[in-house]
Design a protein around this nucleic acid. Structure first.
Lengths: 201, 201
DNA sequence: ACCGGCAAGTGACAGACGTCACCTGACGGC
DNA sequence: GCCGTCAGGTGACGTCTGTCACTTGCCGGT
């Protein structure tokens, strides 16, 4: 019997996924979390075989939860389930020791199979996504550029960004200009879109 | 026995929701659609009591499906289930004759209850959301402003927007300026964010 | 026939943005 | 000690944006 904790911030989807997994005779959902922190606590307390987690969650993202579990040498296997086929996310997830990564448009029958594979020590990556990682270049942005781009994306002016990060306005301009060049964008807005769609923000 | 068709473009969520509803003795999922068009065809063919539909779907949105059903005087009741608590969406949904509108962070136990309520001719709106509509002002944008804002949001320059819509650059500037004023934004990027977060784009 | 409202345009101006060349200081190799 | 590198800054320049006042043409109401 494979014991599972599910983490997902949308309660309806959480309940539905649990119902789906509970239909299987050899799977048992022993815990449900609606935030990253809660997921981490539950995993530590219940020691399930597998944690099935969304990426986008309040407090801690699914990837961060995986990273923490890896850091504390937890034997729990993590299977990420997400909407976003962003290559950057998958890269980070793999770095965090994640064993499975499924897109939410995978047929539902495959979820249980993926859970079993992961529980048995194998890996389960949506094939569609594995490809995407191949032909998506690595994140070209530096930490500074990312931070500035995130603020620019929200519509803040150079001046506002500068004072938020204690930089000079000129420096902010330079970083944004450089980021736009790297991304092949012709302005901050486009740069933001490109970076976000690749999972680099 | 209440007969249901489910429409949701994420296969995994579709399967999970179906599993959840099938657990109930008095509910029966008789059809599954992964696009708006498919949902419409299925509803016409199967004549379920209730259509449970996502908003964001390829081809036709859940709201558009509801509008078409209303136009052809279909007796099928529509229950929308969505991630986004955008007041604008709910308004449009109600105009399209939708009988229920649940957020995906509603506890999963309430989904079946909402289906029953809607099937019986009642209404089921997430209370949280009903409030939001109250204190969200109506969409202040004109069709032109919306179109221009959508393009600006993608990072296009005034010149690009002007030629895409066969307008003069000055006019585009004026529309954007006006839209920003209406929305209380200080630039196009912020205006785009505000409009989108209210479901006005 | 007239008025008001609305879509679209024009011209002008200030300020914000994007680009580039160049400067400074810290810091890790060798 | 010197050199390369990297984060950050400066100044200058041209272009793009945002704002405003004003104009034109169209359309519906009265």
């Amino acid at each position: 019997m494979i014991r599972i904790v599910i983490a997902e911030d949308q309660a309806l989807v959480l309940g539905a996924l649990a119902a789906l997994l509970d239909l299987e005779d050899d799977l048992q959902v022993i815990g449900r979390a609606s935030s990253g922190q809660e997921a981490l606590d539950l995993v530590v307390a219940l020691q399930p075989h597998v944690l099935v987690s969304d990426v986008e969650m309040p407090e801690l993202s699914g990837i961060e939860v995986a990273a923490r579990l890896q850091a504390q040498r937890s034997p729990v296997r993590v299977l990420i389930v997400t909407t976003f086929g962003r290559a950057g996310y998958l890269r980070r997830a793999l770095d965090a020791g994640v064993r499975g990564y499924l897109l939410k448009d995978t047929p539902s029958a495959e979820l249980a199979a993926a859970v079993r594979t992961v529980a048995a020590g194998g890996k389960a990556i949506s094939p569609h996504l594995a490809e995407a990682v191949w032909d998506t270049p690595a994140d070209p942005l530096t930490e500074r550029e990312r931070a500035i781009l995130r603020l620019a994306e929200e519509g803040r002016s150079n001046r506002a960004i500068a004072s938020a990060l204690s930089l000079s306005v000129g420096t902010v301009r330079n970083y944004l200009s450089e980021a736009a060049q790297k991304l092949g964008a012709s302005n901050r807005t486009e740069a933001g879109r490109i970076a976000r769609s690749n999972g680099w923000l």
